[in-house]
Every structure is written in structure tokens, then in C-alpha cells.
């Protein structure tokens, strides 16, 4: 049996600010080299769950967390966890593409430089990541231009490439195509399929259609509960739960 990359076991999360129970007894396993899609209506707990994986939740909000999240079999909330190292191994791409101020190259070398990776290795990493994110041909001659000069779709692929420079094991993309046009969206989706060969991909999709297009396996969440989890071929074609069926067929959401 394959060991799960990430294992979520009976996780509860309640926000301190408004008492919202964002996660209610969620358990699921995510395996290497799959595109795991987490979908559901707004405020169903998807982002809350993802941010716990690399402890980005520490920065963003206060809340009461219970349960266990294992990454490669180790509890990410174990005291003494090297959080910076954890975040290097579980990369994250956000809904709004956010370049850091500076050139395209600065953006791509930032993570490795902070990790103390030697300068001689940086050009290789920059090129490899840009190729993986399908952006190399578009920017190879303008690496020293401001990252803010890129188009929205290019910025998002830059953010993907930027996460890849750290050669993470898991890449989380939280609604990565929310602001993108259809062409850029399809480029990002193609990129995801390429990346699956090497990484574990977790995606919160923009729509049910996108979920069905990219997923290997998918999990449907509603009001903080995991409703249904199955192979994409099953879940989108023969959903077992009435609520999943209603959402997938567009009756609500």
C-alpha cells in the first residue's frame, strides 16, 4: 500500500473571530502524483484546510484546531516543527497572483536564496521552473524586467514557477485561475497535468467544470464537512450523495 503524502485525520477548525466551525471532523488522504481536487461552495472549508497543511494558517487567522495532519507520516503541528522547511516542501499558489517587488528573476530566486541554496545553482532552477510552468519561452529574454509588467496569466504561471524553484513535494493551488481569461486558464490547467508527473498537486478549482477537467481524485466539501471523496471518473459521473449530485449538476452553488 502506498503511503499517503498528506493524511488528514478527524480535523476540526473553529475561527476565533466569528466562531465559524470551518472544518467538522474532516478525514482524507492525499497520495503522491495525483491531482487532488477539493471543491464545494464558498465558505465550505477548503482554503481553511489547505492552509493548515503548510501552517500558513499561523499567519492568517486565529482559531481552535483539533485533530491530526500528517505530512510524510509526521504531524505538522508537532512542537519544534521547522515551519520554514515545511513550507519549502509544501508550496502554495494563491488565487490572486502576487509577484514580489522586483524582477522576474528576483521572484524566482527568492525562495532558494532564503533557503541558502548556492548562487551557482540558481540559473538552472530558474530555467527548469519556468519550463515546467510553461512560461520559459515567453520570458526568457526579459528575466530582469519587473514582474509586475507581466499579464495576469503570466503572473500566475510565474507564481507557480516560483513555488517550483524550491522543488517542493506538494504544490497547493488555491483557486489559481480565478482572475484569468480562458486561454490563460487552459495553459495553467495543462501545466498542472505536466506537474503531476513529479509532484503531488492539490487544487481548489474555479468551477465544477474545471474540477472535472483536472482532477485525478476529488473531494466535495459543504459547510465544513467532507461529503464525498472518490476517483474523478466516479465522483463527477455517478455521485453517491444527493448533495454532491445537486452541486455537480449545478442545482446550487
Amino acid at each position: 500500500m502506498i503511503q499517503p503524502k498528506i493524511s488528514v485525520q478527524n480535523v476540526y477548525y473553529t475561527y476565533s473571530s466569528d466562531g465559524l466551525e470551518a472544518l467538522k471532523n474532516v478525514s482524507l488522504d492525499i497520495y503522491p502524483n495525483e491531482i487532488f481536487v477539493l471543491f464545494g461552495p464558498a465558505r465550505s472549508g477548503k482554503s481553511t484546510l489547505l492552509r493548515l497543511f503548510n501552517r500558513l494558517s499561523d499567519l492568517l487567522e486565529k482559531g481552535d484546531y483539533q485533530g491530526t495532519i500528517l505530512f510524510n507520516g509526521r504531524d505538522v503541528f508537532e512542537p519544534g516543527t521547522d515551519i520554514a522547511a515545511l513550507r519549502r516542501r509544501i508550496g502554495m499558489v494563491f488565487a490572486v497572483p502576487t509577484p514580489l517587488p522586483g524582477s522576474i528573476r528576483d521572484n524566482l530566486t527568492y525562495g532558494p536564496r532564503m533557503a541558502g541554496i548556492s548562487r551557482s545553482e540558481l540559473p538552472d532552477r530558474v530555467e527548469r521552473s519556468l519550463r515546467l510552468a510553461a512560461l520559459w519561452d515567453e520570458v526568457k529574454d526579459r528575466l530582469d524586467e519587473s514582474a509586475f509588467a507581466l499579464s495576469g496569466g503570466q503572473k500566475q504561471r510565474l507564481c507557480i514557477a516560483r513555488s517550483l524553484t524550491l522543488e517542493p513535494e506538494v504544490l497547493i493551488l488555491d483557486n489559481p485561475t480565478s482572475g484569468l481569461d480562458p486561454l490563460s486558464t487552459s495553459m495553467v490547467e495543462e501545466t498542472l497535468h505536466e506537474l503531476k508527473q513529479r509532484y503531488t498537486i492539490i487544487v481548489v478549482p474555479h468551477s465544477v467544470q474545471q474540477a472535472a477537467r483536472v482532477a485525478t481524485r476529488a473531494a466535495f466539501m459543504l459547510n465544513g464537512e467532507l461529503i464525498e471523496l472518490n476517483d474523478a471518473g466516479q465522483l463527477f459521473v455517478h455521485p453517491q450523495d444527493k448533495r454532491t449530485e445537486d452541486y455537480v449538476t449545478g442545482r446550487f452553488g
Binding site: N54, L56, L59, L60, A84, A85, R87, R88, G91, M92, F94, V96, T98, L100, P101, Y110, G111, M114, A115, R162, S163, L166
Partner: peptide, 16 residues
Amino acid sequence: REFRIVSQSLGATRWQ
């Protein structure tokens, strides 16, 4: 604030 979040999501420590 986004710069801080992005920076730390790329494995930079708080001081970095």
C-alpha cells in the same frame, strides 16, 4: 501584507 505571506509561503523565516 501579501508580500509577507508570499515570502513566508516560500519558506522564508519571519526575520528573512
